[in-house]
């Protein structure tokens, strides 16, 4: 029953307001902490302090949510992270 209702609301409403996606950056053993911090500063426009905090979150907790918004925007962010060699994924918020 629950699934039926869900599939009805999800059918063909890709632009509804609550369709928020997130960009997650994951830890890996290769990327340097200084490099990840600088990439976060450069791409997400974060201050050095905030960028370093996010970097430590990735390193210590395995992942950090770096952005949220429309799917298209998250695709741009994830593509940028892949271009820098960072391991990033996108998914619907709340999943």
């Amino acid at each position: 029953m629950e699934t039926e209702r869900q599939s009805q609301t999800e059918g063909g409403v890709a632009t509804r307001l609550d369709d928020v996606w997130i960009t997650i950056v994951w830890n890996d053993p290769v990327n340097l902490m200084s490099y990840v911090t600088h990439v976060f500063q450069t791409h997400f426009g974060l201050s050095r302090e905030v960028a370093a905090t996010r970097m430590r979150e990735v390193h210590e907790h395995g992942r950090s949510v770096l952005a949220s918004g429309p799917r298209e925007k998250m695709e741009v962010d994830v593509q940028a992270m892949h271009s820098y060699g960072l391991w990033a994924t996108l998914q619907r918020s709340g999943e």
């Binding site: 799917r71 695709e75 994830v78 892949h82 996108l90 998914q91």
Partner: peptide, 19 residues
């Protein structure tokens, strides 16, 4: 060129096709 959405096949394929 990692999988951009391991839990969402459609999103992963779409991302790869675009990027």
């Amino acid at each position: 060129l990692p999988n951009a959405a391991p839990t969402d096949r459609e999103a992963a394929d779409e991302f790869r096709r675009l990027t």
